[in-house]
Simulated assay, not measured.
Amino acid sequence: MIKKVLTLGLGKVGTLVGSLLSKQFEVTGMDKQAPHYSFDLPFKVVTGDVTDIQLMEKIISEHDAVVSALPYFLNKAIATIAHKQGKHYFDLTEDVETTNYIIGLSETATSVMAPQCGLAPGIIGIIGAHLAKDFEKLRSIEMRVGALPKYPNGEMGYSFTWSAAGVVNEYINDAEAIHNGRRKQVISLQGKEAINIDGASYEAFYTSGGLGTMCETYEGKVDKLDYKTIRYPGHCDLMNFLIHELHMKDNKQQLEDILKNAKPEVQEDVVLIYAVAEGWKDGQMKRNEYCKSCAPMVIDGQHWRAISWTTAASLVAVVEMVAAGALPSKGFIKQEEISFDALLATQTGSFFK
């Protein structure tokens, strides 16, 4: 049973996660310093160092579940404490190494271990699997997601709407895919393709982590499975120049600092979610498609960017489903095994309707 939830990391996404959870649970939010917003938060806030293991053991012990909206590199320690204490664990990580570590923990877990509950990985895998389930035999699943400024400027056509560390991490690390029926690693920032959505031109390219565990799930069942990030045209070549030709992959922190300084946050953004599955049904080749453009949303009188609410709502809907018994009560939860229809039926998942 979930009654008390600890939310770690009170940036934009973590704060909205806590606010949405507080509609159904008793929530405590924690960060190294109290966040400053122009509105009152609907949950209790405490301050502390999340790297202090003794402190975190005490605080986590007082809750039924812990949700991490922290940078990916802080999640292993939190997941370890949650596993040790038998507390449900949820996070937003796109980092493959972190996820594999949590999968290892889940083998002996007495509670839920659910990383990758955000946008990509997260709901994009739920949607991809939803499109694929109608076919008697699958040929391909392709998933594309873009978190973009509504009004791009400059050659890069980008502004940071979420963690710069996360963006850099997914641009540098290799991605996973299934091509010609074979599971393989592909280089991020490669595989560039043109993509058109509602008459607008974009590009899409491989980035790490967006598929979550889908390659494992669909290996041997599909000829092609891949995930690409959507950006405005020209972005991919510039990032390849920075990361590979200038060798900035060797100094992630410097790269993050340069990008954050050059491309500050914007309030008006758009999140593009696109997925397609192809296969055979009744002896004929069929194609299922999903495309949604998500704009900023006003929730309880407050303006939230598209990246904030799509990421937060994906995670909170999964917590709702676990609390309601609609998902397993222990072990690792694969996003692609979550019913899209059931997620849409939750209070928070209905945001995607």
Rank of each mutant, 00 (worst) to 15 (best):
G48I: 00
R144I: 00
S308H: 06
E320D: 02
P149T: 12
P115M: 01
T207C: 06
L41W: 14
M321A: 04
E265G: 11
G157D: 11
M56V: 02
Q116L: 07
D49S: 02
C117N: 13
Y218K: 13
I243T: 08
L131G: 04
R183N: 10
A313G: 03
P42G: 07
V271G: 02
G279C: 09
Y274N: 15
I53P: 00
I60K: 02
A65D: 01
I60Q: 00
A147Q: 03
G349E: 09
V50Q: 02
L315C: 05
S68G: 10
S19E: 13
E97M: 04
S111T: 05
I195L: 15
A204M: 07
H244T: 05
A277R: 07
D91S: 00
L41F: 12
F73I: 14
H36Y: 02
D257E: 14
K330M: 02
L20H: 05
D134H: 05
I53E: 15
G104S: 08
N196A: 08
G125H: 04
P264D: 05
I258N: 13
L16V: 06
D226A: 04
L189R: 09
C236S: 09
K192A: 09
L20Q: 05
L55C: 00
A34Q: 10
A165F: 03
G48D: 06
A175K: 08
E57G: 12
K260L: 12
I123L: 12
E219K: 14
K76V: 11
F39Q: 15
E265F: 12
Q267L: 09
A204T: 13
K334E: 14
V96D: 10
I243M: 09
Y72P: 05
K330G: 01
D282A: 13
K228A: 12
E26A: 04
N261Q: 11
S188R: 14
P264L: 06
D282K: 13
M297C: 11
V318M: 10
Y232I: 02
G220I: 08
K334A: 14
S106T: 10
Q335G: 08
M113S: 02
L8T: 01
Q24N: 15
S163Y: 03
C215F: 04
S22Q: 14
